[in-house]
Structure formats: structure tokens, C-alpha cells
């Protein structure tokens, strides 16, 4: 167990990070992500209020749809990244564990009268991820295997009222299930009873998201990195780019127009030695950036990393040196993800 975001979390279960990681990509893994913050915003003004805090297009979000966006500060930095689900008369947010108290205070301070914020402390969050996740859930929730990626559904699982989104943090197909905390143990045991499912710890959660090229808050993105630098421009719609109306909009609009000074890029070490967070990136002895996440990619079967480099050097194929234990190690800038995404496409 290790401390994470104020919680004691298991790094791994019995079989270890490597096999948990590979099992999730091959079958299905269950993650207890109840440390994350679940927040509901109820009232007619909720959409407009959230749009004043994030660059994501919340107005365009139809009921039942989910979107990834981020809370920004006045400098265009990222206070947190989050998921926003639109329900008929409310928005449901999922924010990071270590940032949730700040996020809630920040959001609450910017809500107009008539919008109510409910911090769902009595709900747990379980993620079932992997190519067989849908088949496992289909046994309990007929029809669920057909719902689209990035949608939210209310359903009954063994008589328990839950909501689930088809989303996740592994690059695989999968679902995140919001369940009453009092029934979480029951739901977890039910899902783990399926022969396809193993419990997966924090270690594999990190290696899976790293291979998928997904950002970890506090490492790959933080209050000093903008969504544009982080390569998250795809989360900002044409309307929001044009209109602004969120914290740091001027900085972000300028970076969209002129390009940012640095970019988050994928990094492929050429040898077998992992290059981890904090490792300096050089070209010809000149520092051009730093690794923000790195380690061994079990599915890639080699070390993988991501980090920020000067915009002029952020070109796929560029040869770089990673300074590991004082020695330069050859690497290249590569496109992410390191392992192709396998999100569900309903054809």
C-alpha cells in the first residue's frame, strides 16, 4: 500500500504490475478508483457556470454524453483535469483525488445562485477496463455492450442502482461505475467473480495510462502547463476557441494562434533502461526539456516516456539524449499512444 492523493492505495495485488497490466489489455481488470471525487451540479445555470471554468464545450454536450476537459487558471494553467457527464437536469463531474478539495472550493466559489453542488462522498467508483469488460457487464446489464464510447447510462446491477460511463484511463474499452459506497464491496466481488476479471492496482493503472499517452495530473499537467502545451487542444471546440470565456482564455487563444513554446511529446528510449520522471532531455548537450512520466511499458515491451520539449524540437523522429544517472541515453521523439487505443466503436 502506498499513499496517493490522501488515500492508502494498493500498488499491486497478488500477481504483480506486469501481469496485471497485460491481463487488462488481454481480458478485463477491475480498479477501485473511489479516491476520485464525484460531484453533481444541479440547476439550470450549471452548464453556463462550468463553461466559465473550463475550455470544454459543455453547451454542446447532449444529455447522456461525457466529455474530458480541464479547470484552468488565469494563466491558462491546469488546476485539474476532469470528466463531465451531462444528465437531464444536472452535470456529473469526476475529478482527481489529490485536487478534489481545491476543485470543489473553486467550483463552489463560481456557482451562481440556484445551482447546487453536491459532493458525492457516499459513492464509490469502480473501473472495469479491457476488451472483455463489456461482455462481463452485459451478463448483468443486458444491452450495455452496445452503448457508445463516452456516454453515461443509469442501470441496475444485481438490484443496485448505479450509473456507468463507457470511458476509462487505460486506452482500452471499458466502463466506470458509480455505485453507492455501501454496496461497492458487493459490486466489486460480483465483477471479480467473473473468470475474465482480476483486481488491478495503482502500478498497472499508471503503466496502462502511460502507454495510452494519457496525462497524469500533477506530473504531465499542472498549474504551469496549458492544455495547448499538453497537446489537449482537441478538447476545445471551434466555438470555445473563438469565444473564449474561461480562465486563461487570452493565453490559450494566443497559443492556439501562434503555437506554444513547448509541447508534450512521446519519448522512446532506444535501449532497455527506463527513463523516469525528472530526467533531463538534451540535444548535443543542450537541455531542451524534461520527462514528466516514464517507465517500462509492459505491452510495448520496452521503456516508454512522455515529457515537454521546446517547440522547435518537438518533431517526431528527432534524436535526443536522456540523462539517466548522469549518462546520456539515446532516445527519439515519437507519436503517442505507444499502444493503439481500442475504444469501442459501434459500427
Amino acid at each position: 500500500m502506498v499513499p496517493f492523493g490522501g488515500y492508502a492505495m494498493p500498488v499491486q495485488y497478488q500477481t504483480g504490475i506486469l501481469s496485471e497490466h497485460l491481463h487488462t489489455r488481454r481480458s478485463a481488470g477491475l480498479f477501485d478508483v473511489s479516491h476520485m471525487g464525484q460531484v453533481r451540479l444541479i440547476g439550470d445555470g450549471a452548464i453556463a457556470a462550468v463553461e466559465r471554468l473550463v475550455p470544454g464545450d459543455i453547451q454542446a454536450l447532449k444529455p447522456g454524453r461525457v466529455r474530458y476537459t480541464m479547470l484552468t487558471n488565469d494563466q491558462g494553467g491546469i488546476i485539474d483535469d476532469l470528466m463531465v457527464a451531462r444528465r437531464e437536469k444536472e452535470l456529473a463531474l469526476v475529478v482527481n483525488a489529490g485536487t478534489k478539495d481545491n476543485d470543489i472550493a473553486h467550483i463552489a466559489a463560481h456557482l451562481p445562485a440556484g445551482v447546487e453542488l453536491i459532493y458525492e462522498q457516499q459513492r464509490a467508483l469502480l473501473a472495469l477496463q479491457g476488451p472483455l469488460a463489456a461482455a462481463v457487464l452485459e451478463r448483468h446489464i443486458p444491452g450495455i455492450a452496445k452503448v457508445a464510447f463516452m456516454t453515461e447510462t443509469a442501470a441496475k446491477l444485481a438490484g443496485i442502482e448505479i450509473t456507468l460511463t463507457r470511458s476509462g484511463y487505460t486506452g482500452e474499452d471499458g466502463f466506470e461505475l458509480s455505485v453507492p459506497a455501501s454496496r461497492a464491496d458487493e459490486v466489486a466481488r460480483l465483477l471479480l467473480a467473473a473468470s475474465e476479471v482480476l483486481p488491478i492496482g495503482l502500478g498497472a493503472r499508471d503503466s496502462l495510462r502511460l502507454e495510452a499517452g494519457l496525462c497524469l495530473y500533477g506530473h504531465d499537467i499542472d498549474e504551469t502547463t496549458t492544455p495547448i502545451e499538453a497537446g489537449l487542444i482537441w478538447t476545445i471546440s471551434k466555438r470555445r476557441r473563438a469565444e473564449g470565456g474561461f480562465p486563461g482564455d487570452a493565453v490559450i487563444q494566443k497559443q492556439i494562434a501562434q503555437g506554444p513554446g513547448r509541447h508534450r511529446v512521446g519519448i522512446q528510449p532506444e535501449g532497455r533502461a527506463p527513463a523516469r520522471e525528472g530526467v533531463e532531455i538534451q540535444i548535443g548537450g543542450q537541455t531542451i526539456g524534461k520527462i514528466t512520466s516514464g517507465g517500462f511499458g509492459p505491452s510495448a515491451d520496452r521503456p516508454v516516456a512522455m515529457g515537454y520539449v521546446d517547440a522547435a524540437k518537438a518533431i517526431t523522429g528527432t534524436a535526443i539524449d536522456l540523462i539517466v544517472r548522469g549518462k546520456p541515453m539515446p532516445a527519439r521523439i515519437v507519436a503517442m499512444p505507444f499502444v493503439p487505443h481500442s475504444y469501442f466503436k459501434n459500427i
Binding site: 499491486q12 504483480g16 533502461a273
Partner: peptide
């Protein structure tokens, strides 16, 4: 946990007691 990389000293190197000799990296850490 799962060891993914080992860095060994060069043959001929004189090692000193208590000083770095090799590096072992697992999925978790170095």
C-alpha cells in the same frame, strides 16, 4: 516486483564497500 532492466558494473572496475555497484529497475522503481 517485476525486474525489467539491470545495469552492471564494467569488468575491471574497483568497487568500494557501500558504494554504487549496479542498478536494478522494476516496473515500479529504480
Amino acid at each position: 516486483g517485476d525486474v525489467v532492466f539491470v545495469e552492471l558494473p564494467e569488468v575491471g572496475r574497483a568497487l568500494e564497500r557501500g558504494k554504487d555497484a549496479a542498478v536494478v529497475e522494476s516496473v515500479k522503481a529504480a
